[in-house]
Design a protein around this nucleic acid. Sequence first.
DNA 1: TATAGTTGTCTATATCAATAGACAAATTTA
DNA 2: TAAATTTGTCTATTGATATAGACAACTATA
Lengths: 248, 248
Amino acid sequence: MTGLASSIERRNGVSLWRQIADRILQAIANGDFAENAALPPEVALAERYGVNRHTVRSAIAALVQEGVLKAEQGRGTFVLSRKRLSYPIGARTRFSTGLQGQTSERHIALLSSSTEPAGRRIAEALGIAKGAAVIRLETRGEADGHAVSRATTWFDAKRFAGIEAAMAETGSITASLKRFGINDYLRQSTVLSARHADADDLAALDLQPGAIVLVTVAVNVTLDGQPIQFAESRFPAERVELRLLAGD
Amino acid sequence: MTGLASSIERRNGVSLWRQIADRILQAIANGDFAENAALPPEVALAERYGVNRHTVRSAIAALVQEGVLKAEQGRGTFVLSRKRLSYPIGARTRFSTGLQGQTSERHIALLSSSTEPAGRRIAEALGIAKGAAVIRLETRGEADGHAVSRATTWFDAKRFAGIEAAMAETGSITASLKRFGINDYLRQSTVLSARHADADDLAALDLQPGAIVLVTVAVNVTLDGQPIQFAESRFPAERVELRLLAGD
DNA sequence: TATAGTTGTCTATATCAATAGACAAATTTA
DNA sequence: TAAATTTGTCTATTGATATAGACAACTATA
């Protein structure tokens, strides 16, 4: 970013070491440090952020724990990892095709599935009666062995009975929908927000508590406008950015 | 959300009261509590979140400070404010037209402006030489007297000399561009991320430290594809959600 | 081989965050 | 009016957070 070094805030409910860890993460994602480059020494960071050296050490310790940094006594502290993935969002957003060229391996893992009555919001989105049975899938998107998304998806249970088996087998929503005669579909609407990751996201996305997730709530429809899928996806903001596509 | 009550995490750098305040904010934005409705009593909230009543009180105190809640001794604690604004993003995103029907008054305030040499990222986006002069505008979007966005915008200084005066006068990017012969323009690309608000955002958006901002980085182009504007906008996640438009 | 620079460990202290319990003050309800 | 409910205030205790200083351990370099 072009921005100035934003200052660190005290007694606001977020500890200084967490704020500094966030800032370092952001700087890395931002490309301020080259891959494998050394971070400034602890005393320099402490001065830059206006805190004690030990506070900087707490931040670094957290990032070492997360696998982002590696500290070597006598040498310095080094950046292990890369920039953020750029995840495209558009009318034809697909998980597997979206990350082409950025990662070599990607698939969706089915964590669990269940059938439940539709709440108001889901019933409206899918155009079915409130209380009608829907299938809920809990999934995790993975790229190169790293978790990059965590989603909850609902389908009309009557129309898509058995889709959980198809998902488990194929690891792909697109492929699963093909089995139900749907060869193409569009993203009708997307609503975007952000929040702190909850316990479930933390575990599934391998995040440290306090991390931020981008949240998309989307409805997919067939080419003639019939809603087929309602999904809420969470992306770790420190590893993923969303790139909005114009036309598509 | 349909989700289960996600649990509260301890000793992670984010204090319990801040986490609970975030959860309450989210619940309000989510429509779980009607406007002017009473929150559950402190003891009930404490039990729900598995913390001490005093911890809940700290969270409530922060939200009272932020103007979201109002506590009345003997009666209860009440929700003052509304759901999130839904801010549309699409090829023809405009600030003033986007929020129509949700707010009655809206405009963009020019906070400051300057001329500076273009950095690499901005030069590339605007299709000019690195180091060429660009005009930078710092602006705040306001709706009904509330700050809903904070943006930094760059224009080619050669082509748009004096645009800061036009912005100050009209309070509108669209109107200002008209003076330079641009009657229509499109959003070419948008990249989306989220982070903790920095000191500048906190002040401009009237947020409490620790708040989350949604960040969009966008390039606007003329109808024939010529880049005219590069902008980074920050939206307070607790007050704004972004609604992605399909066609448009 | 010194020397400077860097990370690692230890002790000590002050403040913040969270829990616990008791009771006061205000409001609503029976 | 009395009782129940709810927020407000106070004291006390524990653990996490942050600061401060000193020195050890390790690495690179002059």
